[in-house]
Design a protein around this nucleic acid. Sequence first.
DNA 1: AACCGCAACAACCGCAAAGGG
DNA 2: TCCCTTTGCGGTTGTTGCGGT
Length: 287
Amino acid sequence: MGCRSCDKPKMNYRKGLWSPEEDQRLRDYIVKHGLGCWSAVPAKAGLQRNGKSCRLRWINYLRPGLKRGMFSQEEEDIVINLQAKLGNKWAQIAMHLPGRTDNEVKNYWNSYLKKRVMQAQGSIPSNLAAAEVTSMSTTEPPSLHRHHHQQHIKNSSGSTTTSHDRDANLSSGSHGISAPALAAETFDQQPKNFVFSGDWMPAATAEGPESYSLSAQHWPASTASSGNVTPSHAGAFGDHMSSSYGALQQQSSAAAAATMAGGGYFDLLNMGDIYGGFGATGDDLLF
DNA sequence: AACCGCAACAACCGCAAAGGG
DNA sequence: TCCCTTTGCGGTTGTTGCGGT
């Protein structure tokens, strides 16, 4: 792991939100060179960030296949049940949520699910409970009350975009906490969809990623929600990695075919250099 | 219109594990 | 085997925007 060739002079690293330009630089670099020594990335990519920050940015927001937007009922159930089972092992929990990152799961838990679970268990502090009365009188997340029809989501530049995906999820049924058995069932099941491209990647390319033109129009609006509620991560890679590949090859849905057009399984392997592969933890990158 | 509180989420920080020299 | 560096993870903080007053 040590990477002595990456030695670099200490510098004042930029902090705070990432600008679209920084995102672009990081993407460009990784697409061109693949993932390697993160500590070397900032210098090579011309970024005044530390490697840690670049890694986090890539994993949480720039990596292809991330799902943005509201958690579905099924995802909520998985988080709740796995949290009960594993504790705050967000990386492990995220493994079972295709397209979700540990950070996203953690934030969702801390900002919403935790209160719901506490209330369900009757252990929610009175002050919290009071604050939650209005929002918890139904099973919708508080935000859905506050922004009923248009959910404003910040992007990295601090501006907001309007996403409708949360509204889409409103129709997904009750948000009540389901039986614990659900989670156990869920992690054993195969991912339902495999879309092996990020929303910033071309949906279908005959030439494969190598010939892919890096124009800005292909990138998502930074961290803004793409409104994508389609499971777009490469499945629950983690424990299911090998079987997922098998499943993928058997998948002949139009979506999968379109996404993988001209590339298919071959693309997956090639893009592994870019994606870094999805490691045993599912959401982590291996290099 | 201004201020305040809340919610959501992006990002930082610190620690531990992993791996090379 | 030890030391050093990098990576990964979880906790926490900071920032932003919205609704209410």
